[in-house]
Design a protein around this nucleic acid. Structure first.
Lengths: 230, 230
DNA sequence: GGACGTCTTGACGGGTCCTTAACGTCCCGG
DNA sequence: CCGGGACGTTAAGGACCCGTCAAGACGTCC
């Protein structure tokens, strides 16, 4: 395997320097970002094997960076944080982080946890982190959160977008009403099948040429919905 | 997904009790071992989704337990330890552990790290499962919930599909009327044998070239039905 | 405070699917 | 040759699911 690529998202120069010294000595290729927005861009362009992120960033909440990254890739994310409270750890891990280290931490432990992360990705073959889903005229750019029909960009509301990406993640397979409601509206709303109907109608009006006879957003009566795949 | 299975390898009764209370409250199925040797046996027999192991065991070194387990499975292993030295963490992680928590630790953080471990296995397992049944021109994609005759996809209603998959699950073997009715319509409808007749007719019209002389959906007169296998 | 975009909620019409019943067919024994 | 049982076929009714529209609630930004 070639040298593993690491993206570091960290604003404090001292820690950046420390990480650079630690990682480059071990043969990792390192790319740095000092803001959350830059971090998201770096992750999408460098396709790293591991991401290391400090939660205390100047421009946006580190948790949001993790959630954004998680929308299109399963790359291991290791969190560094000055805060060591349990609730901080839990929210970060549930937001999609794979590991959490409180400052101060040792170089050896960091390197060991990076090796663990690399073991994970080595086993799981790189499957679907394409970051862009296509079928027919429809394109969904997970990184930029943009949706196109042909050349025309379509504006989707937050729920519409989440509904669509949920279907994208299971493209070709049927997603039951329960699954859909749980993943989009949360576990408390698995009964309101009505929500899904209303929003599928919205999506179809925005994405389908003939909303009444959909080509992409298909209904499986009595079961759920399916997004057509190639 | 059914309730995740956890194997706990821990000799101290207090911590075992604590873990049991914490995990069973969250719907995990729990199996315990109090020695390293037992632990290895439990892991191989229970096929757990996560292993939690205390390094301070009476009979053998916890690290050896991890190495033994790693010889045949990639199941996530979370280490609990009274020792918090960096070198201990590094050796445990390099021995094959996926995570390391120093005592004392909070229940919330443990649960969060278990969720992380479960995320990993959930993503990894979805690779090679074809889960497609074939016989002659007939193909049943169980994962996608799609049925093809030759190249043509056939739309099945929920009951039709359930009936078909029930037969697929016992392909080649006779399924009695009672079995069929119980598995498709529920235990309350085991008397209405004509349900099966009506829906077998539907299925044959959709899937058979000559519904009157079926090649796949065969009748075993007086007993039940049978799906032909290769 | 008002305008706007978004989400929730209800009502209604149309369509799909399930149930049920009636009838047809085949086979076998009387 | 007749009759009955098991199975296959078809169609009608109604229950349920789904798509649609619109009104109201909610939050946000000017």
């Amino acid at each position: 395997m070639p040298d593993p690529v690491v993206v570091v998202i960290e604003d404090e120069p001292q820690i950046r320097k420390f990480l650079r010294a630690t990682l480059e000595g071990q043969g990792y290729r390192l790319f740095e970002a000092t803001t959350g927005a830059d971090g998201v861009v770096e992750v999408s362009s460098r396709q790293p094997d591991v991401v290391i992120i400090d939660l205390g960033l100047p421009d946006m909440d580190g948790l949001d960076v993790i959630r954004r990254v998680r929308e299109w890739t399963a790359v291991p994310v290791i969190v560094l944080s000055a805060r060591g409270q349990e609730r901080d750890k839990v929210t970060a891990l549930d937001a999609g982080a794979d590991d959490y280290m409180s400052k101060p931490f040792g170089a050896g432990e960091l390197l060991a946890r990076i090796r663990v992360a690399l073991r994970h990705t080595a086993g799981a073959s790189h499957e679907g982190d394409d970051a862009v889903f296509r079928v027919g005229e429809l394109r969904v750019h997970l990184v930029r959160r943009q949706v196109f029909v042909g050349d025309k960009e379509m504006h989707l509301t937050p729920i519409e977008y989440k509904l669509l990406t949920t279907l994208v993640r299971h493209a070709g397979k049927v997603v039951t009403h329960q699954q859909l409601l749980r993943e989009v509206w949360g576990p408390a709303h698995t009964e309101q099948a009505h929500y899904a109907r209303v929003y599928m109608a919205h999506l179809r009006h925005k994405l389908e040429a003939e909303p009444a006879r959909p080509r992409y957003l298909l209904t499986e009566s009595g079961v759920g919905y399916r997004l057509a795949a190639e």
